[in-house]
Design a protein around this nucleic acid. Structure first.
Lengths: 350, 350
DNA sequence: CTGAAAGCGCTTACAG
DNA sequence: CTGAAAGCGCTTACAG
């Protein structure tokens, strides 16, 4: 005779509502109600059930509850790059805000690819999350995948890198205002010829707004915008380095360089110094974002602090509000700007 | 007569397997099988079902499928701080690895609080995720919440900040080896009296290993470990600044400072410079981690590159392997060290 | 090759 | 105040 030991699947280990009901001789319905503190359940019954739940180390299975309630208590976040300073700070704000409301956060990174962005949007849309927070990737030229989400009635909020065409709520930094502020600061410091290291020319909102701020600040101060002083560097350090070299060899009288973000601005400082050009003596430099490197580079970088943590926090609050159709979020201006401020440092000290 | 218009709940918008079955006059079972390319389903049937699924923009509801299959296709990650450079790089690796296997990533941050760590561990354990990746918080002094996970048979893998006491798989940087390498490098550069800015003294593994590497490297080179040259700074810049000031006023012959991470090392450089002490002329400085600031500070910081992206990637692969009880992951050494390498820069150039 | 049925763990209208 | 039943969207042994 052969005895075969069948190992049990051993998959299920967690206590369920049924187990508690069984242990107490009541029905699962009652357990569920008691755990939700339903007013019609007898206080003693509740007490007993709560005790047993604790004793059995019961944790409600939110996935199952969610299936039933058409909710997941989970928000999805799609960003171009998690390890980028800006987005990681943003995620931190999102997580803290979500946590406060008992929401979980699903994070996806597209590595700047729309194809990935589309894939994630589809993947999350099928009952994975209750709403989506998204910052578009650099090569986003279309948004069908996003209008798809809307037609499926999935709440969507864009943050930082947004798209004008999409009629959804947006949380942005004061890109335009900040850009005006820092450009005017350079002008005040006596810069007469300010070059601009620009971001990508795609649909991305913030790159365009920063450029607009730079242009307008020049015009407001009687300085014409000169396209030849602008170089599109996307967000690429190498391109910034080349651009600075080119600019300085073509226009020796450039006395200011402003870059779309701190990474490029720091690269500009390093490049200028390697060319033997004094910063800020001959050329002032400013950036945008107040990254950790801005404080470390020498001279320290003048920049715009734009509070990524708060941008994330507000975007998360907004999406959770939309999920709950919470109208108490103000009269829906469709776009919320998070304050940015000028941080004056050595790179423009004169 | 009063007519009341009842607005439909309008919650459900997504197509289900039932809708497809209905549209095609077959059963949901068949639709499910066809979409999973079940071998026993007629090719023509499959084709029709796939077409209809596409036409109706069907996306399988993984949450529902998961409930049935006792899987969520989701891994949970608990880190002390998302916005910290190291962890954000790690998360990036985790996300890419997970994405490759169609897994989603749920991210939680504890803000260095064990209480939060416990809360998240509990929240995720109730059917939220198939496995958990965790880096312990600084004040973790106990681990009942983690052994709880194990008793619930939830796969758990620790990374970077691990705990010796816990018998689970761990993915770590070569903290000890890297620390030996960089300390010996300083000795080779002629440093005779090397101070150490230490990490927290809690259960955290990597802080202890880096200290051990420093001590052993000294001993191996005939230099005694002198406790008075060590200062516990946790991971706090302010403490590092004070420690450096104190050390230099007490021991004017210190000619090297090594810090548990780059953030503190950079702070050391800045402090030394503010004291008028030449780096590396009078004092060499080294760090650990190769953060972005290491390249920007002047002089550039000599450090250990420890590849956080890869640490995250490997930890994610491992947890997914455990979820699938994939034995092909090697013979389970219980701990995987990710190579680290010395990056020589100006701060130790002599 | 296909379908009906049971069930994952929960919630909630409906009865009593 | 409590329970039985139906059902969220899926999967899968069991029948045919």
């Amino acid at each position: 005779m052969i005895i075969i030991f069948l190992t049990r699947p051993s998959i299920k280990v967690a206590t369920t509502i049924k187990d508690i009901a069984h242990a107490l001789g009541c029905s699962p319905s009652t357990v569920s109600r008691a755990l939700h503190d339903h007013p019609q359940i007898n206080e003693d019954t509740k007490k007993a059930i709560r005790q047993m739940a604790k004793k059995m180390n019961f944790q409600i299975n939110q996935v199952a509850a969610g299936l039933r309630k058409h909710k997941t208590f989970c928000i999805g976040v799609i960003v171009p790059s998690i390890s980028n300073y800006f987005f990681s700070a943003t995620l931190s704000g999102i997580q803290d805000a979500a946590s406060k409301r008992q929401y979980q956060v699903l994070v996806c990174q597209t590595n700047e690819s729309v194809v990935e962005e589309e894939r994630y949007a589809r993947a999350l849309s099928a009952g994975r999350v209750d709403g989506i927070l998204l910052s578009v990737s650099m090569d986003s030229q279309k948004h069908e995948h996003l209008t798809d989400l809307l037609s499926q009635k999935i709440p969507l909020v864009l943050f930082d890198r947004t798209m004008d065409k999409l009629d959804v709520f947006k949380v942005e930094a004061e890109d335009y205002e900040g850009s005006v502020r820092v450009t005017e600061h350079m002008i005040k410091k006596g810069c007469k010829k300010i070059a601009y290291l620009a971001g990508p020319e795609s649909l991305i909102n913030n790159s365009r707004n920063r450029l607009a701020g730079y242009c307008d600040a020049l015009k407001n101060n009687g300085m014409a915008f000169d396209k030849s002083l602008m170089r599109v560097c996307d967000f690429d350090k190498e391109k910034a380095r080349e651009a600075v070299k080119e600019l300085m060899s073509q226009y020796s009288d450039i006395d200011g360089i402003y870059a779309v973000n701190d990474e490029l601005a720091v690269e500009a400082i390093l490049t200028l110094k390697s060319l033997g050009i004094a910063v800020p003596g001959q050329v002032c430099v400013s950036g945008f974002g107040n990254y950790p490197i801005a404080e470390i580079v020498e001279p320290q970088l003048t920049t715009i602090g734009h509070n990524p943590y708060l941008i994330g926090y507000k975007a998360a609050e907004r999406i959770m509000g939309e999920i709950h159709r919470d109208v108490s979020l103000g009269n829906d201006p469709r776009i919320e700007l998070v304050k940015s401020s000028l941080i004056e440092r050595g790179s423009t000290a004169r």
